[in-house]
Design a protein around this nucleic acid. Structure first.
Length: 427
RNA sequence: GUGGCCGUAGCUCACCAGGUAGAGCACCGGAUUGUGACUCCGGAGGUAGCGGGUUCAAGACCCGUCGGCCACCCCA
């Protein structure tokens, strides 16, 4: 107990918390399937090369956050740091994108980062990916679907949508040059990180949190002025759709994403309820990725949600997860009574499996077993001792009846199932 | 990877000008014969994250390390 411990940043989700996770998963599955999305289950491990080609060589994820190791065959493998690359790989491998394909998945992702609240090394995402539709109605569908999710989770008034278009590669190229040209005059005023990015990935300077840098950017060229006409039309059409759907958004021309595969639409759902980890959901269009990974050219778009962050928000709502309380607790004293209890509990489960039945009290006096029954939260205690066994009866005690707690009756063992139904269905 | 704060029983925390640890909750048992919740009594549980240093003596001071939180970075 001293020296066994989980790996840093890789946390247990304890029984107390799992109901909330299940609730979240259930809501998401219901919403996305109402849009016709189908679940796909993907490996946690992929060839390292997939992420280098998919996410981009100069991204932070690939440069310093991946769990990469050689397997026994000396091939380099990596624990997936995100879901899109693997999903696209699967789509290519099985030729799934012959027609429009809409997929979703959920599961753990791995990134070697410094843990904080809302950020772990093993964390969980739900991802949604759509293949085969290039027009902006698909972008709109994805945003609508995510908005509907917040609605179903009760989070709508805590989240806000930020939207941008980063155009095609040509417009980004032209904009990058203009931005670098502008910023080169102010190199000394930039923060250290931004100075470095000026060489490696200038557009990432746009979402710097440094205030002085942001002030400098006020005079910088605007990405919007550099969009190619098609991207511009795509973007304005998307905004039309969203307005029609009644979804509020802010166009943030400094919103760029850290993964190289995006083009045109990018969006983020943000909240201020989570401190520095404000993004709960993010995504966009990635029309070039399928081809880049060796498939036929297929347009695509998608987004991913951080489950830990959503769970934190749900907890913040006061949505405390409740463990399913016990319904029936068997109290059995004596060797014969234990046998009878086991037999009766099994027959109850056969008759109706929806009750939570506990029948392994571990012995002890009636008193201590009743105490355990009480703490289990069970509404009914079935009591068996030598007398009951002899007479084929049970004591049935109501632990939580509204009026006059502790009512107890003696009934035949044959009548137990139907009497339990009567008592438990009343509420 | 950088910076700040922190690390005492299962949980929340206390003590201490440095002299080898306590409370509440939880847990277990008991309050006469087969019955829970309230009350009373009792019990178990910590080599004070780990390692080193200073000291006659350290959980308390110093260093390192691991871990947690917060921010940066980055991202979901």
């Amino acid at each position: 107990m001293k020296n066994v411990r989980s790996v840093r940043g890789m946390n247990d989700i304890l029984p107390q918390e799992t109901p909330l996770w299940q609730y979240l998963e259930w809501q998401v599955a219901a919403v996305v399937s109402s849009y016709g999305y189908q679940e796909i289950r993907l490996p946690l491990v992929e060839f390292t090369d997939l992420f280098h080609r998919g996410i981009g060589e100069v991204t932070d994820i690939v440069e310093k956050e991946m769990y990469t190791f050689p397997d026994r065959n000396d091939e380099s493998l990596t624990l997936r740091p995100e879901g899109t690359a693997g999903c696209v790989r699967s789509v290519c491998q099985h030729n799934l994108a012959a027609s429009t394909t809409k997929l979703w998945y959920a599961g753990p992702m791995f990134r070697y980062e410094r843990p904080q609240k809302g950020r772990q090394r093993q964390f969980h995402q739900i991802g949604v990916e759509s293949f085969g539709v290039a027009s902006p109605d698909m972008d709109a569908e994805l945003v609508c679907m995510s908005a509907r999710l917040w609605e179903s989770l009760g989070l709508t008034d805590q989240v806000h949508l930020q939207l941008n278009s980063i155009g095609d590669s040509g417009s980004r190229q032209r904009y990058r040059e203009a931005l670098v040209a502008y910023l080169n005059d102010y190199v000394d005023e930039l923060d250290e990180d931004s100075q470095r990015r000026l060489q490696t990935n200038p557009m990432r300077i746009l979402d710097s949190k440094n205030q002085q840098t942001q002030a400098l950017l006020d005079g910088a060229p605007d990405l919007r002025d550099y969009l190619d006409p098609e991207s511009e039309a795509h973007f304005s059409r998307l905004q039309e759709f969203l307005t029609a759907a009644g979804i509020a958004f802010t166009v943030n021309t400094r919103l760029v994403r850290g993964l190289d595969y995006y083009n045109r639409t990018v969006f983020e759902w943000v909240t201020d309820a989570l401190g520095a980890q404000g993004t709960i959901c993010a995504g966009g269009r990635y029309d070039g990725l399928v081809e880049q990974l060796g498939g036929k050219p297929v347009p695509a778009a998608g987004f991913a949600m951080g489950m830990e962050r959503l769970v934190l928000m749900l907890q913040g709502l006061g949505k405390v997860s409740e463990n399913p309380a016990a319904d029936i607790y068997f109290v059995a004293a004596g060797a014969d009574a234990e046998v009878a209890a086991l037999r009766l509990a099994e027959s109850l489960r056969t008759a109706d499996s929806k009750y939570h039945i506990h029948c392994n009290s571990g012995g002890g006096s009636f008193k201590s077993q009743l105490k355990k029954a009480d703490r289990s939260g069970a509404r009914l205690a079935v009591i068996l001792g030598d007398n009951e066994v002899e007479q084929n009866t049970v004591g049935l005690k109501q632990m939580r009846s509204a009026a006059g707690d502790g009512q107890q009756e003696v009934i035949s063992q044959q009548a137990l199932a139907s009497r339990i139904d009567e008592l438990l269905r009343e509420h």
